[in-house]
Design a binder for these strands. Sequence first.
DNA 1: TATTGTTATACTCTATAACTATA
DNA 2: TATAGTTATAGAGTATAACAATA
Lengths: 159, 159
Amino acid sequence: MARPPASRNGKSNGAEPVDYGPLENWIGFNLRLAQSASFASFARLSKEIGERPGRMATLRLIGQNPGISQTALSRANGRDKSTLTPLLTDFAKRGLIRRTRTRGDRRTYRLALTPAGDRLLGQLTDCAQEHERDLDRVVGLRDRARFLAILRKITAELG
Amino acid sequence: MARPPASRNGKSNGAEPVDYGPLENWIGFNLRLAQSASFASFARLSKEIGERPGRMATLRLIGQNPGISQTALSRANGRDKSTLTPLLTDFAKRGLIRRTRTRGDRRTYRLALTPAGDRLLGQLTDCAQEHERDLDRVVGLRDRARFLAILRKITAELG
DNA sequence: TATTGTTATACTCTATAACTATA
DNA sequence: TATAGTTATAGAGTATAACAATA
């Protein structure tokens, strides 16, 4: 729920309970809050590894699709190809990915994880799995499948 | 192991089979996709009005809590007070809100909507309601309450 | 001509810290 | 000293447009 953050304990700097109005019962509003909480929780878990959730998604896509081109990758996570250049340069500089020119078409790169990139992705996956266990616990085994189906339906029909 | 994607040549209208791996069955991942789709859908609906979802939330909070201070407002939507200054300046310049000094404490402002701001909020609410009807249709009446309860549980327990 | 990836640029959203004017 | 709001600045994250190399 939308908690007016943390000013309880007698410190009445203005009547703190904020009225969120009709939003409180809306799917869209609560979807945003839940996603934000989930995101923050995962970011907390993976902080020590040093990769934020968004960057991790890119790394995972490369690991899952070795040989993918930058353009295909940019389409896969819905961002412009120009936003990938600095990110991939950083990954390459840190030895996490490898960029090789294709033989057939010398404009494109083929992206793949290095062993170091694969190890990092493994650590990130461990974090994600821990986070997923937290979510599963909160959602509950009984409702999980139904909940997941609805999320997918929203993505499919509103995307 | 994952198949190399997009080895098809030719036009393939951006529909390249990318492997998302284990993420596809994870709550966190699908929560993010659903929220993103919902957000985009709402942004589409409210585009002609000229306010983005984030700014609208601020306007709504003011409308719902007349007399609120900037600091309380910043806490209410979880952002630093300094991020509010340019936004509120813009709202005031466009005649959507009114800032009055309080009598008791001349450091603080009391924020409220002007009639024009109230009208704009009304339009935005119409959009939001249309969006909410879309979401309700997708979620389904039978599952709505349960779905909402789970979203709130996630926010409460992971926030 | 069209496409891949890069560069230049800009806009949004957010944060931190230093500042002012009050308290 | 502490608080309300402002300013300056910086850092992600994203987008568009122009470009060079290649197709």
